[in-house]
Design a protein around this nucleic acid. Structure first.
Lengths: 330, 330
DNA sequence: GGCGCTACTTAAAGCGCTTTAATATCGAGT
DNA sequence: ACTCGATATTAAAGCGCTTTAAGTAGCGCC
């Protein structure tokens, strides 16, 4: 055996046709118990492993999902992992395609298309609704984490405004009224969170205390915002940041300014990233449930592929507040 | 056209054989300029894109590299990106396979094998030399970031001990003598860095000041170590951590303890991760040059595949100290 | 024995592309 | 006119697998 065993090698060893071997290995009906046993044994002895490339080609179906991500984004990484396990359960294989310099979003998507993925899961893509629509004409497309208006693609995301509302409710429950918000910039996601803050404050009759401080979803932006807050004449008793990274920046600025969290000011982030869970950060934050989002996304694509759904769906998950040590009573 | 155009569609439209079209599209010698022009035009009109799956199968060569990584590890993420661009230059495609729960290292490697990758790039694998050797018998294997003794696989890594030495030299140059080391645990990498610390201190006649504080390459471990250091009767004037995450933990503990960096104590990390570059952390650290490692790894595998190299190589890169704001004179 | 069944098994036709050997074309050379 | 060489094109044989239609047995039954 000078190379990897092929189907024909297994067949020859058992003395049956390649067709039988193929059927046995895929657990398809037909072969007798005896044949199954012998084939399985021979395959094991030879260490046979099917060639995915060939199987994919022969099957009309590819059973391949493509994931577009920015591998440097920790949340994407977590999603990629969850998508992998969800796809596995559904009998789909996954290929990852990441943005790199020299390989922008559309380049990365083309690679996925070249592998003839049947479905595409796009993590927070930048493409507009029109482009996405065009893509959706060719393959099943699920956009994850971002709202897409008026398009043929499926969308799975979590209700960002609700998450922020929960944060506010938690703080109000602890007696806070003077609650400031560290903004996340002009993205779709940041906008939804800002809106959630405004809504929740108004709902609680705290419209007069609405304070939005510029920020940008990075530690640095948070840090700047934190310094600003700490220097205020009448600082808030609580701060909600548009994401965890921003919150960590705020925290850093607070520590340097001698502001104690949560004794002086309570702090809440958003994402429940690994950062937030670190013992010395221990941040109250909002969890987006990556596993659930991944699972819904995979199911959505499988419905299109295997069950013939044609209408686009939008699945909006309810985020969940995770209370840790960065919040306390006034 | 009810489906993606195939080679035959292009051929039919131009009125030539599929063979000619294939040759033109791959820029192979043969077809005349005129044929080329017409084929290219037809392909463009139809929006033809080759099916990688079919090409790979038909070519005896797959031109596919598999990368094993833990997508949640930021350094791996960076490497994945760099490998992508390096592979692209060499005309190879890349598939990523990540560890997930329910999919351990060997499972992830098998997926790669199922795609019939010609070469495997393994980022800091746990497998032992024996297992790796067995793998290497089937495909070209490059282990990245870790030393592998006595095996047939290629290795690309950076000289961790040298990196730490550079850090020490920098500190000594600033007048420090009392330099402590926050350890990274019992991994191969951590061991090399610890050794580098010891060697460098001895070389500078500072053996008497060698102080190793337990840690584990996480923020929490660093934080614990930092508290310990801050509480010392006679604290060091500088601390070198086994990696950036540890250093960030140390920094956090220092800030809380009122220890100023770098006025009171200088601090150095290792990895030059994005963390280190953050304005409010601004950590002096050691850069491992992910791009260079990726490029060497890809070249190594290409040499085996395209140039028939059979002897294993070990490429050890020289890391580079990046001086930022966390270090200063005593 | 012939017929109809059921239960297996397999020949053979792809999947969409690459590649090689063979064929066709056309001047140039003698 | 006839061979030779280039040059351009293509028929056809795969790549390693899946799938379907056709085939072979085996068995009970009239």
């Amino acid at each position: 055996m000078d190379h990897r065993p092929r189907l024909a090698d297994v067949a020859a060893r058992v003395g049956v046709s390649t067709a039988s071997v193929s059927l046995v290995l895929r657990d398809a009906p037909g072969p007798s118990a005896e044949t199954r046993r012998r084939v399985l044994q021979a395959a094991a002895e030879l260490g046979y492993r099917a060639d995915r490339t060939a199987s994919m080609l022969a099957r009309r179906r590819r059973h391949l999902l493509g994931v577009l991500l920015d591998v440097r984004n920790p949340f994407h990484a977590e999603m990629a992992e969850e998508i992998h396990v969800a796809a596995d359960e559904q009998g789909y294989e996954v290929v990852l395609s990441t943005l790199t310099r020299g390989r922008d979003e559309s380049g990365a998507i083309e690679t996925l298309l070249d592998f003839r993925c049947e479905g595409l899961l796009l993590l927070g893509p930048d493409a507009g609704a029109a482009e996405l629509g065009k893509l959706a004409a060719e393959v099943a497309v699920v956009v994850i984490g971002r709202r897409v208006t008026d398009s043929a693609v499926d969308v799975v995301r979590s209700a960002d405004n609700v998450g922020v509302s929960q944060a506010i409710e938690h703080l109000v429950g602890l007696g806070h009224r003077r609650i400031a918000f560290v903004d996340g910039g002009r993205g779709v996601i940041a906008t939804a969170r800002r809106r959630g803050y405004r809504e929740a404050m108004r709902r609680r009759g705290l419209a007069g205390f609405i304070t939005i401080i510029a920020g940008d979803h990075t530690e640095e932006g948070g840090s700047r915002a934190g310094r600003l807050v700490a220097a205020l004449d009448e600082p808030p008793t609580a701060v909600v940041a548009s994401n965890d990274r921003g919150a960590v920046g705020v925290l850093d600025a607070f520590i340097r300014a001698g502001v104690d969290v949560p004794e002086d000011i309570s702090l809440i982030g958003y994402d429940d990233s690994t950062l937030a869970r670190l013992a010395h950060i221990d941040l109250t934050t909002v969890n987006q449930d990556a596993a659930a989002q991944a699972s819904h996304a995979v199911h959505a694509v499988v419905q299109r592929l295997d069950e013939g759904r044609a209408q686009p769906v939008e699945i909006v998950l309810r985020p969940r507040l995770v209370v840790r040590g960065s919040t306390g009573p006034v």
